[in-house]
Structure formats: structure tokens, C-alpha cells
Design a protein around this nucleic acid. Structure first.
Lengths: 301, 301
DNA sequence: TAAGGTTACGGCGATCGTAACGATC
DNA sequence: GATCGTTACGATCGCCGTAACCTTA
């Protein structure tokens, strides 16, 4: 057993058990990885993969168990490298952030700007995905830190930190009937609604609020990001239900935003990362910066 | 980075950072490990060991962090091998049990006999140590399963299972004044006491019982095992406070045992093993056997 | 001077690449 | 015939062992 065999198994998973692609990723010829796999299976005494003809089509039960350990080894290997790199120079490196459009546009700019001033040598990569993909990004080592509102919890391999709480707001063109008077679920439900797609940005809280009131929403647009919603609100298509922080008092002067904290349960945005994954010092400072920004935001509102 | 370098680091810890001894353990010449260590440190960019002259004297802060990951890799490597071996033949292998004299002599014989009938191909190794060493044995991979009464808990890397509960008993020669009448802490404390060493077999429960009663025990013998205690009780040196199950109605006919469950809090014997450590099927069956024996014992009493 | 560690160098073997072949869609 | 995997074989590079040397208790 050696580390390149372990690496091979990891890459094989990534490539859908394709030896040729795995060879390419590892910068060796295909015959080499073929033989390494044979040697490893021989050493263990039984096959790790189900084969159909010569093709690898699935993991054997043994293979599945072994894969868990392979992940552990791979994680530890990455950690050693990260720890050493961090120790050599804790001002340079990379952070991969996975997050959603709303966070990327309305929350992250401030903390990221401040972080970049302190750590100009750290490259920040942002991956923007759907909330349900965020955690997967962590597990696949495509992201170090995920910032998300829905779908976290109950993952023993994850550490999650409370970041900040926010409420939804209703946005509408100036002069709309809902600009005046007390807002209620009933009044809102009387208009066509534009809001987030399922699983995005607290959508589930919107659902639960109106379901509790026994109301059916007429959702005529479900978008992944706020800008699309605002665009169609401007066209007079209906009421937009968006995250409160996504209303920009300056850029959105032509729209009216009304707080819905009394109608829709608060949403909680969290920071998540893998428990087993070593985060360099600067990443920890990045998280600190997020928490500072979160605190500022809560004091503001 | 490769697995033998990782292995080297592990062995270096075992040998007290002695390169020569590490080389010997790894069946290679000393110069080889010296160079491998250099290469690895070079790859990481900074030293893993503090050196005094040429000698390795301590881990650097980097080294300490790296060592944690090294342990993880080593554990995963062992797991892969164990899983594969288990998959090939789940009826052969080894179990290393770490336990104390009392468990080894008075509890384990029955479950081990039954287990051996079912799994004649499994070699059972027993390491008998002091309770405080038991957990260390697990961490050092010198034992797979620890069976112990004191000093477990609050170790996140451990899984502990409740095994059985038992009480202490007082043993004395026939005809001793304490053979008759109600037993109390006061009556016991009036005699010289022979019992377990600190940290052994529920000794702490004995302490707390008498401390609660405001009594000082005159402990004239503190032994690690029950047989020594019984031997000196037979010589008339005093009252023996031993684990109830350590009294053998047949072999100890010349002694009188009196239950102390109303005076001394119950002791709990637990099974512990490393969370990260893969236990072969037969080991899991061995634990089942322990639990069966534990149940039988509690029904008896 | 014994024990622990480093450096230099030659030899051997593990692993790679080339290449030809086999199978499956 | 294109994709995917295996087998055979020569070449190379990494790693080991020998051996001489350095350093400190």
C-alpha cells in the first residue's frame, strides 16, 4: 500500500470509476494506474470494484468500506500540507468559499474587502451554487467554507457556526396598494408573488408562514437570486418576497421594502466547514471577519 | 510524501525520537530513515523536530500538529488492512484485550470460553495492566478492546459501552466478629482493611463511601489484585474489601463474604474501544459475548 | 569510545512509458 | 471504430545498503 494507490482510489471516485480519466488526472499513463489498482487489490486479497467485462462499474462492499478510510487518509494528507504551508507563511494561500447568490452579493462584500486589506496575499475563490450543493462542495474538497441559510445541521462531519439572523421583506413598486397600512399574510397572498426557488434563501420559512396561516401563495416567479426577482417586480408582475438585506436603499429607490419580521420566521445564516479539515490561520481570521460583519449587521437593524 | 515516511514518524514517536531504533523497527538501515526524514522535512519546508546537535529531542509545534494527522493516516491504513482481512475471512484473526486482574480472573473466563468455541481461529491476546494504562493501550494500538471499571469517560475518541454493575463485598476469616450482625461503615472501619490500590477496581467508590461517613480507613494493604488481598485476609491481617464477584463460594469456603451494596456505591464495568478503529466482525461478536455474560451475571445476583 | 546522526556512492528494484492487444458499445 | 482496460517489456529513477565520517555524552 502506498499513497499514490490511495490517491488513485480517490481520483477513481471523482472520475466515475474511469481508469483512463484517472490516469490523465494523475499525469501518468493509463497502463500504470491499471497495474497499480491490480497490485492494490491483490495486496488486499479481494477486488475493490465490481467489473463488467473489464470496465469498473461499482464498488464492492469491501471497496465501499475502504473508500471511507481512503477519504480519511486523503484528508489527513491535505491537512499535513496545509499545516506546513500555513506554518511557513500564514499570509499566503487560498480560500475556497461556497455560497449562494444572496450571501455573495449582499453579505460577503464587506467582510471580504476588509479581509483582503489584511491578507492581500490570500487568493479568494468563490463558488456560487444552490444551497443543497453547498455541503457537497465541502465534502468534495471543492470548498473550505460554506456560507448558507438552509439545509445544514445533522452532519456529524461538519462544524457549523451561527453567523447572523435576518428577516424577509416584501418589495413592490412605489404606489402599490401594499405600501400603505398594516401588512398581513392575507393581504400579501392576494397578490402574485415573486420569490426564491425551493431550497433557496429561506424559502422554506416563507412556505411555513403561509401554510400556518392556511393560505396558498400564487408564486409566479421562483428565482435563485434576488436581482431577477427585483427586475420583475419593477415590471409590475407582483410582490417580491426577498431577504431583507437584499434591499438596497440607494439602488432600489424606485422600490418600497416593507419588513416582514412579524409574519415570516427569522432565517439563520451559518458558516460551515468540515471538522476534519485543517483551516489555515488566515481562514480562521476570515471567519472572524464574517462574524464581525454579522455583528455589525445585527446592530444596524 | 509517502506512507513509509508517515510510518517513520509514527515509529519515531514510539522509540522516543531515536532514529537508530526506528530504523531497526522498520527493518532498514539507519541512514535510510535519516534521509527519508530529511526529505520529508524538506518537502514540508520546515523541520518537524527540534534538534540538539544532531539528536532529535522534541517535536516542533509544526511537528506536533503533523503527528495528529500521521496518527489518523496510520489508523486508516490499519483499518483498510483489517477490513480487507475481515472480508477475506471473518473467522480468523486476533483480538487484543486490555484489562485488569479482577476482570481477567473473575469476569472474562466465561465469555472467552464461549467465544473460543465459536471462533477457534481467533487468537486472543490479553494485556493485563493498571486501569489508568488501559486507555493508553488503546491509543497506542496495543489493544483493541479495554474492559475496565475506573477512569474512562470524557474521551471523544473512545466509544464506551456499559457492561455490568457490581458491588463490593467484605471478606474475613470464619469466626470473625464481623460475620455476625448488621454491617456498617463504622464497624468496618474499626478493623484494619485490605483492599485495592488507588485507581483499581472501584477503590475510589470505597474511598467516597467512607469519606462520606466521616471515617478514616486503616488500610494496611493496597494490592492490585484480589488474590493477594485474600491471602493476607487468611493470615488474619484484617478485613478484605473486594469486588463481590471475586469471592468464589467454592474455593473461598474458608472465608466469609458479606455484601456491601448498602454501604458502598455500585461500580460500573465498561467496554471501551477507539471510535476510529475498525473492529472485525468477530470482535463485535466478542463484545456481544461480553454483554451476554454481563446479563447472566446481573440476573444471578 | 560508544551511541546517535549525516553524507557519499553504487546497485537494485519498483514503477513508469511505449506499444501491441482484447473487449465492449 | 472509438472507448476502455490489460499485458509485455525495456528504461529510469527512487530508495536502499555499505561505508566512511561527524558529534556529543
Amino acid at each position: 500500500m502506498n499513497l499514490s494507490q490511495i490517491e488513485l482510489l480517490r481520483v477513481l471516485q471523482e472520475t466515475g470509476l474511469n481508469l483512463s480519466k484517472a490516469a490523465e488526472k494523475m499525469h501518468v499513463v493509463q497502463s500504470a494506474v491499471s497495474r497499480q489498482l491490480q497490485l492494490f487489490e491483490e495486496e488486499l486479497g479481494s477486488p475493490l470494484f465490481e467489473r463488467k467485462g473489464k470496465k469498473l462499474v461499482a464498488l464492492t462492499p469491501l471497496g465501499q468500506r475502504v473508500m471511507d478510510e481512503v477519504s480519511a487518509i486523503n484528508q489527513a494528507k491535505l491537512n499535513i500540507q496545509a499545516i506546513a504551508a500555513d506554518y511557513l507563511d500564514s499570509n499566503h494561500g487560498t480560500i475556497h468559499i461556497a455560497t449562494t447568490h444572496t450571501q455573495a452579493k449582499y453579505f460577503l462584500p464587506a467582510p471580504i474587502r476588509r479581509f483582503r486589506e489584511k491578507y492581500p496575499g490570500v487568493r479568494i475563490y468563490m463558488v456560487q451554487t444552490s444551497p443543497e450543493q453547498l455541503i457537497a462542495q465541502l465534502h468534495e474538497h471543492k470548498a473550505d467554507i460554506a456560507i448558507c441559510t438552509e439545509k445544514v445541521e445533522d452532519d456529524a462531519e461538519l462544524i457549523t457556526q451561527h453567523c447572523y439572523e435576518w428577516h424577509h421583506a416584501a418589495v413592490m413598486p412605489k404606489g402599490h396598494p401594499l405600501c400603505e397600512g398594516e401588512l398581513s399574510c392575507e393581504r400579501l397572498a392576494a397578490f402574485p408573488i415573486l420569490t426564491y426557488s425551493f431550497g433557496f434563501t429561506g424559502r422554506s420559512n416563507i412556505e411555513s408562514a403561509f401554510k400556518a396561516a392556511g393560505l396558498e401563495l400564487d408564486i409566479i416567479l421562483a428565482a435563485a437570486d434576488t436581482d431577477v426577482i427585483k427586475t420583475y417586480v419593477r415590471l409590475g408582475m407582483g410582490i417580491g418576497l426577498i431577504a431583507g438585506m437584499a434591499y438596497d436603499a440607494f439602488a432600489d429607490q424606485d422600490l418600497v421594502a416593507r419588513d416582514l419580521s412579524h409574519l415570516i420566521p427569522r432565517s439563520i445564516t451559518k458558516i460551515a466547514y468540515l471538522k476534519q479539515n485543517y483551516l489555515p490561520l488566515y481562514s480562521q481570521h476570515f471567519i472572524d471577519e464574517l462574524l464581525v460583519a454579522a455583528k455589525e449587521r445585527t446592530q444596524l437593524s
